[in-house]
Design a protein around this nucleic acid. Sequence first.
DNA 1: TATAGTACTTTCCAAAAGGAAAGTGCTATT
DNA 2: AATAGCACTTTCCTTTTGGAAAGTACTATA
Lengths: 115, 115
Amino acid sequence: MAAKKPYLSCLDSVKPVRDALDVINGKWKLPIIISVGVGNERFTDIQDSIPGITPKAMAKELKELEQHKLIQRIITNDYPVKITYKWTTYANTLTPIIDALKVWGLKHKQEVFNK
Amino acid sequence: MAAKKPYLSCLDSVKPVRDALDVINGKWKLPIIISVGVGNERFTDIQDSIPGITPKAMAKELKELEQHKLIQRIITNDYPVKITYKWTTYANTLTPIIDALKVWGLKHKQEVFNK
DNA sequence: TATAGTACTTTCCAAAAGGAAAGTGCTATT
DNA sequence: AATAGCACTTTCCTTTTGGAAAGTACTATA
């Protein structure tokens, strides 16, 4: 009997993809990054720009994104303390992914709709 | 007093990205697609090629991916019934996303490592 | 007849995620 | 003095996810 054909290794692709997913996976991370990217800086502005997100989810995701250096939290000690969130240079490296997802999302909607 | 500056809308980007995420979000979907993409066809081969995945997760994800037409489940009524999973033409549209994630994952590891 | 392989399913249970609603501490405005 | 806005946090509760382990139904092989 012939030797059993072994499975094909694909860790070269799977591992980096998993590394990327560990950072940007989830329902809200990319939406928040996009919102900050178009210029929303305040907590409530970001929240208002993303339908369905709760302040609890916002706070949690913002913290994680800050830890991953994808957004920056800036405290301004003016008369009223002001907190702003900003897009980092490092976040620029995500634009190819965001663009690819946007293009695919639009195509997929067509695909589903035209069926 | 000046009128309150309103938040900036970003639904044009957020909505399609969310549509895409709804389909490919999760820990295992892209790894499975990649594994089938390199040529693994059998349940156990796919499972063996992805470290850490359980048969329960496999079965669930394979079903969902089939529903989204990203993989095809083929039953061959030979002597022992044989089931194979195949990459669909439609799954080709995902390669830009997979490539972008792979590139970013590799860069991100460098970034974390060199710090 | 006994063992092994394939492709799952089922059960159990712990941990994580997710949402609604209310609360907090601060300041600015009326 | 009362109200409102900002940036959250806290509580409560339900749902989802995730893994370990065992089980099942079938067939092929020794």
